[in-house]
């Protein structure tokens, strides 16, 4: 059996209006809370927030680049990512194949947190 790493190498991306539009097109999620500063100004967030799964998929991609796969995952979006912030992943092994996972905005605020069970990716 492949030894699981203690930590998955972090992966970082920049968000921004262009990335928000690209992600909206990718998922067909044109919710104006992500794209329209005027609409977002009238919400409790005050300005556009990134799609939640932009951060989730960064985590999924970080796991994939480590040659692994999410067996199961349970996360919550704990804070908004404001469009323009950077996103960085963290995944630290606990018991067995369980990892504490999170994504930070601008290296500070935790915008996604939870747990995941990871496994080495089987050869296709």
């Amino acid at each position: 059996m492949t030894e699981l790493p203690q930590e998955i190498a972090p992966l970082t991306i920049a968000t921004g209006p262009e990335a928000a539009r690209a992600y909206a097109a990718l998922t067909q999620d044109w919710n104006p809370i992500h794209l329209d500063p005027g609409f977002a100004a009238a919400t409790p967030f005050g300005r556009p927030i990134a799609h939640g799964t932009m951060a989730l998929n960064l985590l999924v991609e970080a796991v994939s680049r480590a040659g692994m796969r999410v067996v199961d995952l349970d996360i919550r979006f704990s804070a908004p990512t404001y469009v323009g912030q950077s996103l960085s992943t963290r995944a630290v092994r606990g018991e067995g194949a369980d990892y504490a996972v999170s994504v930070l905005a601008d290296g500070e605020s935790v915008v996604l947190k939870g747990r995941a069970t990871l496994a080495a990716r089987a050869a296709p």
């Binding site: 998922t27 809370i33 799609h51 799964t53 989730l56 998929n57 999410v70 995952l73 979006f77």
Partner: peptide, 29 residues
């Protein structure tokens, strides 16, 4: 595939109100 999951969720339930907030998610591959 996760992005497709979101696309399916968006396309399946239309029209929808503006301003829904995605709070949590579970996945199992």
């Amino acid at each position: 595939i996760v992005a497709g999951m979101m696309e399916a969720y968006i396309r399946a339930i239309q029209p929808r109100p503006k301003g829904n907030v995605h709070a949590a998610q579970k996945l199992a591959f």
